[in-house]
Amino acid sequence: MNQLKKILLIILFLGLFLVLDLLISPRMNPYYLQILIYCGINIILAVSLNLINGFTGQFSIGHAGFMAIGGYTSAAFTFYLGPKILETLFLPLWFSKPLVFVAGLLLGGTLAAFAGLLVGIPSLRLRGDYLAIVTLGFGEIIRVFILNIDAIGGARGFSDVPKYTSLFWVLGFTVLTIVVVRNLVYSTHGRAFLSVREDEVAAEAMGINTTWYKVTAFVIGAFFAGIAGGLLGHYLQYLHTNSFTFIKSFEVVMMVVLGGMGSITGSILAAVILTLLPEVLRPVKDYRMVFYSILLVILMITRPQGIFGVREFNWDWLKKIFSRKKAQAEGA
């Protein structure tokens, strides 16, 4: 595919998302719309964490921390600087508002990426459970740090964040995350990430700068987590540190493990399932989380390697499964 075709394809998709947004958002039940947006945000989180945990094999449980940095940074940007920028820019609002929003998101992502760099550095010396503890601690440090900054709400939470996030943005960034991680993983750099997971000593001996790849995985993963945080903040118009505790980090880890460490499609599917599950289980009321946990336990027992394992979903599997069932039905 040449450059022009690629750019046209991107514009085509953006147009499609915009049309979807304009058509669906006003008509859809706001509750369903919210779930849809949460699905998108969770897909971004799960896919980006999979790059760190699944593909590079560095077990991190600090994703909520990166998310918080991105969320608060972008919200602070659009809340404090946004109005001033809108005033000084002599551009129509429909154009300048998204500009401010994207600038805020990118700033949030960049700061989160910087935090990823800081966490990535201990990962050079630590592995396995030790690294997990460090990332967990780092996530909590970020949360408590934010809790004590009054300018961004402190313990009261950050309210009156402008409402910029819409279905369009969530769709756009979800697809962007998936495409970036997928293209990265299926390239010569992706094989370097994988080699670090498989055997660090051998990777190093084969000329892979394992240090660089570990840190890079953290930086890229954290960047997208930061974007996800920004999308969430500008959707709810309110941010509170309670949304970014280690429980949120565990949720994302669960999505990655459930989908399969090292499977992008697995992460996407698991993110959707784990977002829908608590909502679907609402009828059982008080026992909701009990059922949720039981279902997780059952899934992990039946498929400990995750839904897709290290592989990606492909259509041939479905065909195979269906043809087998058909054959069985005919045989019976």
Partner: peptide, 28 residues
């Protein structure tokens, strides 16, 4: 010490990596 979960060819491709020129952005 092979990269056990990777296909045979990928094991060799990893070792070629240091002579490749495509950057992160070009790959994306």
């Amino acid at each position: 010490r092979l990269f056990g979960e990777l296909p045979v060819i990928d094991n060799v491709l990893v070792a070629f990596h240091q002579h490749t020129h495509a950057g992160l952005l070009a790959s994306v």
